[in-house]
Design a protein around this nucleic acid. Structure first.
Lengths: 209, 209
DNA sequence: GTCTATATTGCGATAGAC
DNA sequence: GTCTATCGCAATATAGAC
């Protein structure tokens, strides 16, 4: 029996996760978790070692799950434009997923206590996405589709461009979520600006304004 | 005597600010503030009404102060390139200011309790910056320097591009700060990509790097 | 300094799998 | 019957509140 199929384990992770996401690490007691899920505290210690172990497990499973849905499922199309647009769509969809926001809040809030969790979250999430994107850019550069000095930095630019202030607006509860149409609009616009820039090019560009 | 010159008021704001930034709203007691600054609780209630009033005042003064140092001090140069680069520099300098990070953390953390504070923070900070930038872009469009469909969205793109993952890395304590050289490099790169894009343009291309 | 809440552990009992 | 996971409950330790 692998650990992922253990039903007791899953029950505990679910209940504890709900509490941690609502209240944070310090405010959630082992007793309150047991009160919700039933059974004995002893089981938690047997399965996870201690409270911190349980917490880490929850963050790791959630990040893993969230991030692996988005980035690596992308195939590598020939046109850089398609690749960027699909990437942007996936990213925006992930950000507007409430669970992603919950993980983000919890990880950033508890980062001083659990620095290694912050590190893993960043490596598995934003950094992995950025590296994936940087590879795509480097490849497109070899094809002659684009030209960049530093693919890593350019990837970071695109990433930030797509995200914009969305994360902050969600944190401040200014936006509930984005409509699919709005997601699409932002992805398209970011892709266009990233590829073509906004400076007028008097030479090319029959510029019929 | 205006309220900004009242020395007692300033002392209290300073001490309370330190505690709120360290511990958050709920975890900071009025008593602990008085313990640090001396005097009587009565003064706090006389000056600020209640604990929430004191808290709001701290957030407001800090946001006001932070953002007004950066954005509006910019003059409006003729070249869009200069304007963007200076904007990017100011933004990165602000983000790497520890106090800005503290305000950000506190506001996002307490946003569910103080939604109007989140609103004001956003309007005074990111949104004001974005509007300022959108105006510059619209103006540059009239001059024929650039062409954008939606100046607001383009401004959001540039803003996000400059910020990148910096905020997150600071929150997760992956970066202490950025060197002035690195700030300069990011500002320049973002400006260049934003204006010119990365797609190769076989027609023009005098492109002597 | 006392009281309380809470993390953590010790240990015997139990129920179901094989 | 043995093994293993879990349970139930009591006990320890400690930090913070009052």
């Amino acid at each position: 029996m692998t650990k992922n199929e253990d039903p007791r384990r899953k029950e505990i992770l679910k209940a504890a996760g709900e509490l941690f996401f609502e209240q944070g690490f310090a405010q959630t007691s082992i007793d309150s978790i047991i009160a919700r899920v039933g059974g004995s505290k002893r089981t938690i210690y047997a399965l996870f070692g201690n409270k911190a172990g349980l917490f880490k497990e929850i963050i790791l499973e959630n990040s893993e799950d969230l991030f692996s849905q988005s980035i690596p499922t992308l195939s590598q199309p020939h046109l850089i434009e398609e690749a960027l647009e699909v990437f942007a769509l996936r990213l925006l969809e992930m950000i507007t997923n409430p669970r992603a926001l919950g993980v983000y809040k919890l990880v950033t809030r508890e980062a001083p206590q659990f620095p290694e969790l912050g590190r893993i979250y960043f490596e598995q999430g934003p950094e992995r996405a950025r590296r994936w994107l940087a590879d795509i850019l480097a490849q497109a550069q070899e094809n002659g589709q684009i030209r960049v000095e530093d693919p890593e930095l350019a990837a970071a630019h695109f990433f930030g461009m797509v995200r914009g202030d969305l994360m902050l607006e969600l944190l401040l509860q200014r936006e509930e979520t984005l409509s699919p149409a709005e997601i699409h609009r932002r992805a398209k616009s970011a892709t266009k600006v990233f590829l073509d820039g906004i400076r007028t090019k008097p030479d090319v560009e029959t510029a019929t304004e």
